[in-house]
Structures are given as structure tokens and as C-alpha cells.
Nucleic acid binder design. Structure first.
Lengths: 161, 161
DNA sequence: CAGTATAGACAGACGCTCTTACTATTCGGA
DNA sequence: TCCGAATAGTAAGAGCGTCTGTCTATACTG
């Protein structure tokens, strides 16, 4: 049952990360909110862009952004290039959340590497990457690679893989 | 990003299966409903058992079962051994749904095998199975193996893997 | 038989999603 | 330049699925 073999570790990972981030004080973040925080680009995005990335309507994304704004993870900035548009950007707290999430994912991945051994772990990731590529998904970097730094800073060693 | 590498194919698979089943006429089944149909044992289960398997409250499971009953996928039968309890069992339509779901999953899995090649596919499943085992999950057979036959019938060749 | 535990239902709340409808702004062609 | 079409976003209302708290009926146990 390939479905369960994929969904069990996938669920396990996100549940554990969510739990650890909750313990670290990021209490307001729900599953849907965390998706927005993953998808939000380093320079911010418009509601419509976020809605497209997440595959939901503008209205649904508006609701999520409203919640994230109320909890001070993001802020709305008027787009100077378009009077209709609003740019959603991470606040300091939003960046702290993303860094913490990347840390916890890295820790969990290390635990999995200990369970399987480095060779098998590498092989597993390689096979999954090939499968994802052949399934034709073309996600922007923001989804396959964690966003942990504001624009203008060099992309350093971590947050890779 | 191991999370995305797992969640993308996992989501892809369930979205496609859901879409195909919808096309085949099983229109009332939502994601939560499909989870119940996966978890429900061949001889039926009580609300409380289902709630435990799914990791939700009795009340939430009661709601889902109510919907499935209204759409004729399951029926409620008084439990002769316990006057408080009710056994939830698949109807004919419920069995048809499970068989159709197993068929579609098998087709998709075949497509993936064509994409990766049989050797890599086998290796991927083996690695995932090892990971799931080492993560300490002990799901009942009903979750890792599709339920497609009423009790009393021999478990035949398909629905395996 | 009395007290406790269990199975399930009821009520209310909230999170997230959708559809329909609307306003404000921008763009593009005559 | 200006008018119509497209786009960004908001508003209102509905439905699903989840939770907590509360309740009844039945079963188990000392």
C-alpha cells in the first residue's frame, strides 16, 4: 500500500514538527497557517500569488493571512506598483518561526538518518526526488527549500535539502 | 526538504484517486470519509474503535459515520453483545467503493512503476516500509492493506502491496 | 446492589474552505 | 484620452470537520 507508506512518515514528520514548534512558543500556528509560512517568498507575496501557490481561493487565503497578521507573523504593505494590491511580508516573529521550523525539520531528518543509516536515507531521498520530478511537479524553490533569510542576505550552508 | 518529497507524491496519489472515484460516481465521499472507509474493518467496527483508529474524538467520528450512513455507504447495526454499542458495517455500495478505490490505487501504482522502473519502485517501497517500521507505527492491517472483501471470503491474489 | 466505567448522542464553538457578489484599481485598444 | 475588460482584494453566507462539555443508557465490578 504505497499510499500509507508515504502518508505515515509525511504525517509523522509534520505532526512532530508542529508539536515542537508549539512547545517553543509558536502557539497560534495551525496546519494551514504553516503552509502559508512555507510558501511565502522571502520578499513577500500578494494574496493572489499565495492563493495560487497553495491551490486555494483568494478568499480562503485572505482569511489565513488575516489570522497570521493578527498574531504578528506577517504584515500587509501597500504595493507601490499597484494600488489594488497588498504585499504580505514576514515580520521578525515570522522569520523566527521559519528559522525554528527549519531547525526542527533538520533535527528530525537527522533522527531518521540515524534510524535508516546515511546510505539508505540518501537513497530514499534520491528516489523520492526522482519520483516527484517525473510526476511533473514544478514547485517554486520556496516549497522544496526552506525560506529562512530575508532578501539581500547570502544563502548560506544550512536550510539545504 | 524531506517533508515536501514525501508530501507531494502522497498528496498527488490521494488527489488523483479521489478524482477518479468521483468520476466513477462516488460523489459524496470526501477526504475524511475516505479515511473512514479505509479504516473500517471487514466485519465492521464500533464508533469508538473507528475514532481510535483515526485518532479523532467519538463525536467527530459520529458525524462522519452519520454522513456515510445518509449516503448509504455504511449501515448501523445494534451490537448483540452490548446494548450500548452500535456496529458500523459497509453496505453493498460501501464494498463497491472500496473495491473501486483499490483498483484505482493499483493503476496509479502501476503508472509510477512505469515512471521509475520496477527495480527502483521496489527499492522505494522497501525503504519506506523500513522507515515506517522504525518510526514505531503499528497500524492494523486494515490501514496498510486494502479491505476489499466481506468476511468469510478467502483473501485472494489482489489488494496486496 | 451500588458505584464506576463505557458507548454513544446532543449542543455549541471554531477553523477552513467554498460560492456569489461587490468595490477599487489598472490595463489596453479605439 | 477615455471607456470597457481584466485584476486585486473584500464581504457575506454556507457547509464540513474538528473540538470541548454535557447528558443518557447500558455494562461491569466489588
Amino acid at each position: 500500500m504505497i499510499g500509507a507508506l508515504l502518508s505515515i512518515p509525511s504525517f509523522d514528520l509534520s505532526a512532530r514538527v508542529h508539536h515542537r514548534l508549539h512547545s517553543r512558543g509558536f502557539r497560534e500556528i495551525t496546519d494551514s497557517n504553516s503552509t502559508v509560512m512555507k510558501l511565502l517568498g522571502p520578499e513577500g507575496d500578494r494574496i493572489t500569488e499565495l492563493a495560487n501557490k497553495a491551490g486555494v481561493t483568494k478568499q480562503s487565503m485572505g482569511y489565513l493571512v488575516e489570522r497570521l497578521e493578527a498574531a504578528s507573523y506577517v504584515e500587509r504593505v501597500a504595493d507601490p506598483r499597484d494600488g489594488r494590491a497588498v504585499v504580505i511580508r514576514r515580520t521578525k516573529k515570522g522569520w523566527a518561526y521559519n528559522r525554528a521550523a527549519a531547525e526542527e525539520v533538520a533535527k528530525l531528518q537527522e533522527e531518521w538518518t540515524q534510524l535508516l543509516g546515511p546510505a539508505k536515507m540518501k537513497e530514499l531521498k534520491s528516489l523520492l526526488a526522482e519520483l516527484v520530478a517525473k510526476l511533473g511537479h514544478h514547485y517554486e524553490g520556496s516549497y522544496l527549500e526552506a525560506v529562512t533569510r530575508p532578501p539581500g542576505q547570502r544563502r548560506g550552508s544550512q536550510a539545504r535539502s
